[in-house]
Design a protein around this nucleic acid. Structure first.
Ligand SMILES: NC(=O)c1ccc[n+]([C@@H]2O[C@H](COP(=O)([O-])OP(=O)(O)OC[C@H]3O[C@@H](n4cnc5c(N)ncnc54)[C@H](O)[C@@H]3O)[C@@H](O)[C@H]2O)c1
Ligand SMILES: NC(=O)c1ccc[n+]([C@@H]2O[C@H](COP(=O)([O-])OP(=O)(O)OC[C@H]3O[C@@H](n4cnc5c(N)ncnc54)[C@H](O)[C@@H]3O)[C@@H](O)[C@H]2O)c1
Lengths: 205, 205
DNA sequence: GTTATATCGATACAGTTATATCGATATGCA
DNA sequence: TGCATATCGATATAACTGTATCGATATAAC
């Protein structure tokens, strides 16, 4: 009876479906072909993706919007609240800390820390005990690259299990902690490479 | 004689090698196995990736660091200067505008625009003419999601060929413009999903 | 009620990406 | 000078990801 396997690629598309559905004004049913057209994806691919989280699709009509959203939400864990702390309340850190877009995914940055005492920030001496007593699972690193590893090490002494790192450094962590490095500059450089390749191809026609 | 094909996956690793090499204090030669160990990748994979940009690797010794860096730089186009403009000098926009990490990839955000007159910002009325006369190729959108499409449309009237979009909306663009959507919230949600899956697997042992 | 059809679910195929293996060769060292 | 070996380059295989096709079926339309 099973259909699709939980792969990385699918995991990256489910949030896209969810976002699309959430912003869809209409309450009408949605189908794989509709989603595919709207998001510029393959119809079969969408169908298989959805099959991973729901089996309520019906021939001719597709899925009930709210039901499908609930199933994605449940699968992705958006209904479970996740608490994150942020270290490095500088320019980028402040932007993220103030950003409200995390809520809909069940994520809350409950506290920000910085070496310097600013705004709502707590200083670092309370960091460890705070994370432990509040059962923080996710750490966000937005300090400069020189201090990223030491902040990371500190996080490893708490119950934190996942680190979202914006400093352009590769962090050393124990096995049980997952790190996601976000490198904005390289991402943009890849986009630009694509752009140049495209321009080149057009010239060579 | 050829070896590796230019695929998306390779393109995403080349900057990682470059970053690693750039920060490496030593000037000694590097080899595929060394890079593989340091970056936690497959040795064969690294070797094939490097073969795409360079053929100067020698048995036993590997590559000369500076030569390899130059070859990646050349392949990725980091030696070509790319000018970008940013629209929406809010919290996130300011952080990006001030960020100096783009330089090493040949990228410069030469000007920021905003509806409101702030700081160094230019207002929107000069946008189109500025982009055209300055031959801007890249646009960065950091306005709220309500205004992202209109900013995008405006960019499409200039010579801009690539858009880096941080607003959580899917933009409609003409074919010749490439869009890269960055959705921070969904990225973090995927990291959290991985975290939860990992925790679950450990329990089920 | 019957029929037409859009969509689902399943299977088969194709393309992309990663890994394993092996001979060739440049270098270091006896 | 000759031998040992680390690494390269190449080819083969495996895993993952995406696409094409087709029968089954629930619904809409008549
Ligand atoms: N600004 C951006 O748009 C951007 C883009 C990509 C990556 N980054 C990376 O994000 C990080 C932050 O960038 P930023 O522009 O916000 O820099 P920033 O200097 O504005 O902020 C860094 C903050 O970290 C704090 N800090 C430093 N060491 C600390 C420590 N040991 N413990 C606690 N707090 C500490 C500082 O007090 C400061 O407030 C950097 O690593 C940068 O490379 C920034
Ligand atoms: N802050 C974050 O960390 C973060 C994270 C992920 C995504 N985003 C997205 O990035 C965008 C900006 O976020 P922010 O937190 O910086 O918001 P912000 O409100 O601080 O900044 C938005 C800026 O855009 C300007 N603006 C609005 N409409 C404009 C228009 N038509 N032309 C020119 N300028 C215009 C505003 O004047 C303001 O300065 C949003 O779409 C948000 O969803 C932000």
């Amino acid at each position: 009876m099973l259909q699709n396997t939980r792969t990385e690629a699918v995991l990256e598309r489910l949030p896209i479906y969810y976002e699309y559905l959430r912003k869809l004004p209409s309450e009408e049913n949605v189908s794989a072909p509709i989603l595919a057209k709207a998001l510029n994806l393959g119809e079969v691919q969408v169908r298989k993706d959805l099959a991973l989280v729901s089996h309520k699709g019906k021939p001719k009509t597709g899925y009930e919007k709210s039901e499908l959203m609930a199933d994605i939400k449940n699968y992705m864990g958006y209904d479970q609240k996740t608490k994150a702390v942020l270290v490095g309340l500088g320019k980028l850190g402040s932007a993220l800390y103030d950003y409200e877009g995390f809520q809909e995914f069940g994520i809350e940055i409950v506290q920000a820390f910085d070496r310097e005492q600013t705004r709502l920030t707590k200083t670092m001496d309370s960091f460890t005990s705070y994370c432990i007593t509040e059962h923080i699972e996710v750490g966000i690193i937005t300090v400069d690259e020189v201090h990223a590893q030491e902040v990371c090490d500190l996080m490893a002494t708490t119950g934190i299990r996942a680190i979202w790192n914006f400093a352009p450094v590769r962090l050393n962590v124990p096995d049980y902690i997952i790190v996601q490095n976000v490198n904005m500059a390289t991402s943009l450089s890849i986009l630009i490479k694509h752009m140049r390749d495209q321009i080149e191809n057009q010239v060579n026609l």
